[in-house]
Computed example of a mutant assay.
Amino acid sequence: MHVDEILNAIPPLAVYLIVGLVIGTESLGIPLPGEIVLVSASLLASQHDALNPLWIGVFASVGAIVGDSIGYVIGRKGGPRLFAWAGRRFPKHFGPAHIAKARGVFQRRGVWAVFFGRFIALLRILAGPLAGSLHMHYGKFLAANAAGGIVWAGGTTAAVYYLGTVAEEWLSRFSWIGLAVAVVAGVVGTMIVRKRMAAHHPHEDETPLPAEAAAAPGAEPAGS
């Protein structure tokens, strides 16, 4: 089965749910490739009419907001234990140095760390649990979290979808453009070669052959 047929066989709702679930789970504090999933889904939407980029952005935004909110509750109730477990389980993402750095950013920036953290891989994963463990006011957290999630998800979806559409249109015309360029290059190359050959041999066609010279009027017979 062709790849396009496989993609068309997947229900659009399944794609939307996968995007929302992966991003929501990542926002809980579990390192999953949420941004890669969002970019991939947006790119597919630019190539397949069955997928609506608007719904991809909506599900991604909802997943980000809900996941961060659940992460906030988890961090508020058991932040130290959560970070200690995550450090043992995922030392490359949640080691003591990573947690200390992210905590310092949140303490200095407050709600702005929540908003802009959505655009940074490490803070995107830790935003909810860290805000909860630091007892940030939930109303302020929710406002910054919702704004960051919508801007990040909507902006990423729109940008990737637009770039994918432009790229597909350009690639669809490339075969005709390439053919036209090849034809023009061939004609121009042939003309250049002929001009150069004529320049090197300007009187080649006017040189008489030996037999023609012997038969010319007034020519003396051989041996006279």
Score class of each variant (00 low, 15 high):
residue 70 I to Y: 14
residue 70 I to M: 14
residue 70 I to R: 14
residue 70 I to V: 15
residue 71 G to P: 06
residue 71 G to N: 04
residue 71 G to I: 05
residue 72 Y to M: 08
residue 72 Y to C: 09
residue 72 Y to H: 06
residue 73 V to Y: 13
residue 73 V to I: 12
residue 74 I to Y: 07
residue 74 I to H: 03
residue 75 G to A: 08
residue 75 G to S: 06
residue 76 R to S: 15
residue 77 K to M: 13
residue 77 K to D: 11
residue 78 G to Q: 10
residue 81 R to P: 14
residue 81 R to D: 15
residue 84 A to G: 10
residue 85 W to H: 10
residue 85 W to R: 11
residue 86 A to N: 09
residue 86 A to Q: 13
residue 87 G to Y: 07
residue 87 G to N: 10
residue 87 G to D: 07
residue 87 G to P: 04
residue 88 R to S: 14
residue 88 R to D: 14
residue 89 R to M: 10
residue 90 F to N: 05
residue 90 F to M: 02
residue 90 F to A: 01
residue 91 P to V: 01
residue 91 P to Q: 11
residue 92 K to H: 13
residue 93 H to K: 15
residue 95 G to E: 04
residue 95 G to L: 02
residue 95 G to M: 02
residue 97 A to M: 00
residue 97 A to G: 00
residue 97 A to E: 04
residue 98 H to S: 06
residue 99 I to Q: 00
residue 99 I to D: 00
residue 99 I to L: 11
residue 100 A to R: 06
residue 101 K to F: 04
residue 101 K to A: 14
residue 101 K to N: 09
residue 105 V to Y: 02
residue 105 V to E: 07
residue 106 F to G: 05
residue 106 F to Q: 01
residue 107 Q to Y: 00
residue 107 Q to G: 10
residue 108 R to C: 03
residue 114 V to E: 02
residue 114 V to T: 10
residue 114 V to I: 12
residue 114 V to Y: 01
residue 115 F to T: 12
residue 115 F to L: 13
residue 115 F to Y: 12
residue 116 F to I: 03
residue 116 F to S: 06
residue 116 F to E: 08
residue 117 G to T: 01
residue 118 R to K: 13
residue 120 I to P: 08
residue 121 A to Y: 12
residue 122 L to N: 11
residue 123 L to A: 04
residue 123 L to E: 02
residue 124 R to P: 14
residue 126 L to H: 08
residue 128 G to N: 05
residue 128 G to F: 06
residue 129 P to A: 11
residue 129 P to L: 08
residue 130 L to T: 09
residue 131 A to Y: 00
residue 132 G to I: 01
